[in-house]
Design a protein around this nucleic acid. Sequence first.
RNA 1: GCUCCCUUCGUCUAGUGGCCUAGGACACUGCCCUCUCAAGGCGGGAACACGAGUUCGAGUCUCGUAGGGAGCACCA
Length: 466
Amino acid sequence: MTVRTRFAPSPTGFLHIGGARTALYCWLESRRRGGEFVLRIEDTDRERSTDAAVQAILDAMQWLGLNHDEGPFYQTQRLERYRQVADDLVKAGKAYYAYESKEEIEAMREAAMAKGEKPRYNGYYRERNEPLRDDPNRVIRFKNPTEGSVVFDDKVKGRIEWANAELDDLVIFRSDGWPTYNFAVVVDDIDMGITEVIRGDDHVNNTPRQINIYHALGATVPEFAHLPMILDKEGKKLSKRTSAVSVMEYRDDGFLPHALLNYLVRLGWSHGDQEIFSTDEMIALFDIADVNKAASRFDTEKLAWLNQHYLKTDDPQTLAPEFAWHLARAGVDTSNGPAPADVIVALRDRVHTFKEMVEKAMIWYGPIVEWDDKAVAKHLKNDTAVAVLQQAKTLLADCEWKPEPIHRVIERIAATLELGMGKIAQPLRVALTGTQVSPSIDHTLYLAGRAEALTRIEAAIGRAQG
RNA sequence: GCUCCCUUCGUCUAGUGGCCUAGGACACUGCCCUCUCAAGGCGGGAACACGAGUUCGAGUCUCGUAGGGAGCACCA
């Protein structure tokens, strides 16, 4: 049988880190086993679902490259199907109408809690067989077995057993005419032929109820795999307040989709000591059964390390479009400056993200906006600096404009003036950037372009003497 | 409160009874390299939550304790 997994987010916000990892694992599991990956939007919460959120999720999935084979399916378009299945259940005596108001249910819960019991529905209408009647409070409840237990072998958590006595008759159809989550997922997963249900472990407690519904419907129960949570640096639930949670925020912050994927795949899963995984390796090696049981914390520093790793090892030409996107987003006009791919080569050892790279690249795409007084005082305000700059101005005017020849010119100045490289590079660096920090001086000069470099050196001579 | 789940360096993890004086990676840190900043190379510190038991032998199996998490909705 073909393996079919699904990712089923509810469109109440952006795709967050935890959801992205769940989607990744679903995607990898289907890919490795030659199966299919289905995308389903669980939008039965009419209050909180929005079209914008649906689009945001689709965009994020696309940016990550997690392509689906089927869907997206929308639960709101399947109302008739849910209604039909629920009616069949009622006709078969496996579900029933109940008429308590929300207030009555609430009172029931509180009473149970007061007695030290688990809050459960008391089954008042279960065996009454009252004739169907119109009522604003009318819901359909599932007749959960009262005896025995539900056992399932979770692929990550292991064997889990649940006494039916702990479960109550959950509502499967609300008074507003919409199905509830626990019912809709089961109907969908059956109809869509899902064989592996991979989702967050906040759903573990729902699984026994769902399995009972599968049985009532006479359907084959799929395999389950419940993934542990991803916590923030402090070990708390990830929240917008403390860290970036939306995957698109990571794109905007200058991370590469593959770096994020690599980080996420290692968060809760491993293959020996291997840290770096290409997409193909992930697909070949990932196995949902190897996922850890415990929650893990999101560590931005390790993500940053991975991102720099890919910045350093990916082909600058293939990275260039993404970098150009960030430059454009920052309002940089690249037509009057160096090629983005050249800038990547010069800066990739010095930054962790494209965002940082854009900031450092500004020295080549615009005038010096700010002069570091300390740098000027230390490296420009002296006679040797002036001598260096003057020689540079002359010799750089007609050397071949490439890093290597430029480097030879600098060495020649050092030899003529009998100075160490530091005495040459720093004045030039301040002249070119206004600061004491930049990539190697030959590349810094090269990327500025001959005309701009000479202009800045000229200006620096004036500043040094003024 | 009840039910279920989790627990190896600061963090992500390796480890499936002897290969563990517990390995790797990020972070931190020392040295080297060096035109600045990085990057890189070579080192360093750092963990089996606790207690019983099973066993010749336990990070690995069992049971308790403690701590943490999730769920107990007409939300997904």
